[in-house]
Design a protein around this nucleic acid. Structure first.
Lengths: 264, 264
DNA sequence: CAGTGGTCTAGACCACTGG
DNA sequence: CAGTGGTCTAGACCACTGT
């Protein structure tokens, strides 16, 4: 627990707590801080790095919220024993996800045009009745073999002239961010287990009735505005869905243990 | 934004920030604070409730981390426009999940005994070579129709005498907590899209080759110790997997925008 | 310009853990 | 008992937003 190894740059625009957190997470990644090990305490970090305890605390808390560590009152903060990997999913665009996997993403565009959306799209994107959307339908490939068929719907109002400005084989999320300042923040996703129709099987180059995932994903901006609705069909033999679930007792058992005592 | 409506009990063991957070989230739930509305600022909460700004801030931050609100520097904190529902998944036991859905959970026990585990179980639970596990295999039913077949593996070392102490149609998570003090904290889950084998189809009362989900789930205690490994097969026609994905730019684009400037 | 959230300080008291 | 994390205070400076 060589806190001293962390070097702070007080002139930097990077917050101190973030520099500390980066330093500690680097020591975890390098194995200098091993799983289960006691991390430096808040007071130790504060003293050795010359920051206030609240700043040290903020660094440790952000490590905890990222799953790299866990705290126990009266004992200390420990490095998590969890297999870390990049297992648990983030909201990534297809291109980003393929890069993370070390695969080469490619696309074949089936459609890219303005349409009048169906009811499911209107509801998911909170559209006005007559509002139009931009439809982008692509076969997505990883390492030259089809992985999924994806139909993306965007409110035309939020990205005017996208049809002219966007090269549909590229990264949509990057285009949205760079050309329209639209930052995707989170998404709700529904997955179903199903089997491929004849048409889908052809596009995915699998036998009819092969197992597939069907996804419906609604992505939101930071303020909750829906920005994208995607329906996609993934080959069951080429992908698995990995999730990390947490048990937030906040409003479940907590209400019957701690909270009841105070009448909160 | 009637902050005054929140009443604090300073004698309570419930932290002030938690009381404030509860009050605000109640106002959101009741519609008093509408989606998109500006929430009371940190300073306003601090002034009106007579707490420090850091405490007010902690309340607002926890609302943000729960997805009920979002903050914008220089503008304020706003109520999220996200459809809240209970959509996004927590780590729940089968019994808990059925209750949340308003269904009646039932189980048919197929096996409940000590076994020598296979390699996948040994690896998932970080077992020593000759260590034994308790296997609990059940058909899980919701409203009298089969929903899944579930095989749970627990390290026998961590819950001795479970075979005698546990009524295998009940809630395992509750038994682990109450009888052994083992609190499940999080889990990693892998889902595959597949089709039912003949034997599975029989147990699930579906046709052979019907679409199913195959799950493998490893649950962990707070300290990262694996406590449970579950393989389950869910009927594709009776369940969907709902997830909420977030985009944590922390180590992605942030490094090319903010962080680079300071040489962090 | 005034108001906002983001960061930071230097203290404080508490409940809890371990020896 | 000393050390830990959990909570809380009363200030501070900053960058950013709107007008």
């Amino acid at each position: 627990m060589r806190v001293g190894a962390v070097v702070l740059d007080r002139q930097s625009v990077v917050p101190l707590y973030y520099q500390i957190q980066q330093g500690l997470s680097e020591q975890i990644r390098s194995g200098e801080l091993k799983p289960g090990a006691l991390m430096p305490s808040e007071q130790e970090i504060a003293a050795r790095l010359g920051v206030s305890r609240m700043t040290a605390r903020q660094a440790l808390k952000s490590l905890c919220s990222r799953g790299l560590a866990f705290s126990q009152r009266g004992r200390g903060t420990f490095v998590s024993r969890m297999k870390l990997e990049k297992n648990f999913r983030q909201l990534l665009s297809f291109s980003e996800e393929m890069k993370d996997r070390g695969s080469q993403p490619r696309s074949r565009v089936l459609a890219f045009r303005k349409i009048h959306p169906g009811e499911d799209v209107v509801e998911a994107l909170h559209l006005n009745p007559a509002e139009e959307v931009i439809l982008l339908r692509r076969v997505r490939m990883a390492d030259s073999a089809p992985l999924c068929v994806e139909a993306t719907h965007l409110p035309a109002r939020l990205c005017p002239d996208l049809l002219e400005n966007f090269e549909p084989s590229g990264s949509l999320y990057r285009a949205l961010a760079e050309q329209y300042g639209l930052q995707v923040h989170m998404a709700d996703e529904v997955a179903e287990a199903s089997i491929a129709t004849e048409a889908e099987a052809k596009l995915l180059r699998v036998r009819e009735k092969s197992p597939v995932f069907r996804f419906m994903r609604t992505a939101y901006l930071h303020n909750g505005q829906p920005i994208e609705f995607v329906k996609s069909i993934y080959r069951g033999d080429r992908c698995r869905v990995v999730n990390r679930l947490t048990r937030q007792l906040e409003n479940r058992q907590l209400s019957s243990s701690v909270l009841v005592q105070g009448g909160g």
